[in-house]
Design a protein around this nucleic acid. Structure first.
Lengths: 333, 333
DNA sequence: TTGTAGGCGTTATCAC
DNA sequence: GTGATAACGCCTACAA
């Protein structure tokens, strides 16, 4: 700006104002405006947002914490978040927390150092102290997918309870009563909610619950695989499985494949979350579809509105509907 | 820092030095160090990286431009880039360019405004002027996946030529001679290289080439779907298809499904790129696997080394090997 | 071993 | 209509 000012023979103030669209407000002469713009363009001027951020105490940057960006569920959320934020003039710093709480903590403090204006977190674990701390410090935070009951932080999630409920009802309607539940991280919110849906569906249909039919530790393929092996090897072999973990269902299928268990003839399967390739699997998989784009967009909207207005969103909890997509992985026992 | 300095009764310089690990260098008294650190900790001090960046003219931030983060190939690359960068003390600003060149241009200028130290780009299209421009301006840039012959920008890509060559040879060895090629963005580098591999494989095996067997416009599922429909509906129906586009193969399978064409009995299929679910598709898909993690890590390494050393990498072109993963989508005609 | 002061690029405020 | 100046928070050359 200094250079431009020197060249056009004016002060930096004028240059700054012209380049910030405040020319009218300050009734700057049209010729002045033009010459400033011309020179700026010729010199390829680009504002230094870092200096700007320092002065205005606003970085126009948000942080996005994701447990695993290579998981398509989160990747789709990240896409919609980034697209939305960019359209609103915000940049997104991505932090893949690698499903590790320490990395999550570290990333949060890193992002604070960078003066982000707000934070979107899909929390990794059940520990919430560090998240509560940022929130309490006054930084706008919106949670994604998982949330914490005892913290008053706005969140966006899909209706895990109802999704699971419907999925399990679907299995029961197809004649199943021995339905295994392949869970994700046991005390994560989505898992707990899905488990609750599972139990309620059983209860409402007069099917008795057995904890022997619950298995699993994590939201990943390997865990789905070993859970399936365990469940299908026991005495009380289930005739159907409800996979809470999105990628976990792939592990289940893999295990069935190896154990030569035919789906759906010998085992029915319903999985939480949708994939582009679900219809092409062998067999095409019946899923509970989550509105990933909406989740991302809703969360960004909440956060950015908050940043612009200075007031936290009134509707601080958003639960988005899931949808049962019936394909061919469910049959009768 | 000012507040801390006031509280401990010293100047900001001392505080700054202690907090930056320069205490020894300036032989600052141990007690002084301790009290500074204690107060800093108690007050929850966190450096303002924006101010720091302004002063040091270094943001410790890189930009990552990706055509579509929801595509698992790019998501995996993004993950390895982010993880690596974070470990090296850099943050990653993610820009999903939505396969749109205008967004790509816009994002680049946005990132420049933000004073990023370097740029990692998986370019969207064939237009390269804007990319050449940033590079020429002196900003370190490393290209991913796609690159430009006429620009001297370092890049990392997998061996698209050899991958396709091997895939097509595999088909020929299985007795095919009418092999269709479902391409991605026609004049993108990966596509051109894969096409070249395809042609050379035919030639080296004495199979004649026919442009009627080439179809496709984009790297997406819909395009793969319509290409397959077109190719499999013509006079010269191929007995095998080589899908250049990763997600495109899903479209091909979808089309076959609808047209009741059995894979591999009636049509063999090989697809570029690997998926976690490839073994679980119907049928398990034979693929050309790309080393996504390596691509991301290699590119980040090149960029960050460049940033730290100030010298562009000596080996400016990295071509990583692919691997043929044979499953059950290939049979004999 | 510690302090002073200037400046990084920008914008708000007040003055002319 | 335009200009001078201070301040945002930090680092460092130089002084003490």
């Amino acid at each position: 700006m200094k250079d431009i000012a020197d060249e056009v023979g004016l002060s930096v103030s004028v240059v700054s104002r012209v380049l910030n669209g405040k020319a009218d407000e300050f009734r700057i002469r049209t010729e002045t405006q033009e010459s400033v713009r011309k020179v700026a363009h010729r010199r390829g001027f680009s504002v230094n947002q870092i200096a700007r951020g320092l002065r205005l105490n606003k970085s126009h940057t948000i942080g996005l914490l994701i447990p695993d960006i290579s998981n398509s569920f989160f990747a789709k959320i990240a896409r919609s978040v980034e697209n939305f934020a960019r359209r609103k003039g915000y940049s997104t710093i991505l932090c893949d927390t690698e499903n590790d709480e320490d990395i999550e903590k570290e990333s949060i403090s890193l992002l604070r150092d960078r003066q982000i204006d707000g934070l979107l977190i899909a929390p990794v674990g059940r520990e919430s102290k560090h998240i509560g701390a940022v929130f309490d410090s006054g930084l706008p935070v919106v949670l994604l997918d998982r949330f914490f009951d005892h913290l008053d932080i706005p969140y966006v999630t899909s209706d895990n309870y109802r999704g699971a409920y419907e999925g399990v009802c679907h299995l029961i309607q197809n004649g199943h009563s021995k339905i295994g539940y392949v869970q994700g991280i046991p005390d994560s919110k989505p898992n707990l909610e899905r488990l609750r849906g599972y139990k309620d569906a059983l209860r409402d249909n007069g099917v008795s619950f057995s904890s022997a039919l619950i298995c699993g530790q994590a939201f990943d393929e390997r865990d789905g695989y070993s859970s399936a092996k365990k469940l299908l090897d026991g005495k009380k072999t289930p005739t159907a499985l409800f996979a809470s973990s999105s990628v976990g269902a792939l592990g289940v299928m893999q295990a069935c494949h190896e154990m030569e268990i035919k789906i759906p003839a010998e085992l029915s399967l319903v999985a939480f979350d949708e994939y582009p390739y679900a219809p092409l699997l062998s067999p095409p998989l019946t899923t509970i579809s989550q509105p990933t784009d909406e989740i991302g967009e809703m969360a960004s909207t909440m956060l950015l509105d908050w940043l612009e207005s200075g007031r936290r969103p009134e509707t601080a909890e958003k639960t988005l509907e899931t949808r049962l997509v019936s394909r061919q992985s469910v049959g009768s026992p």
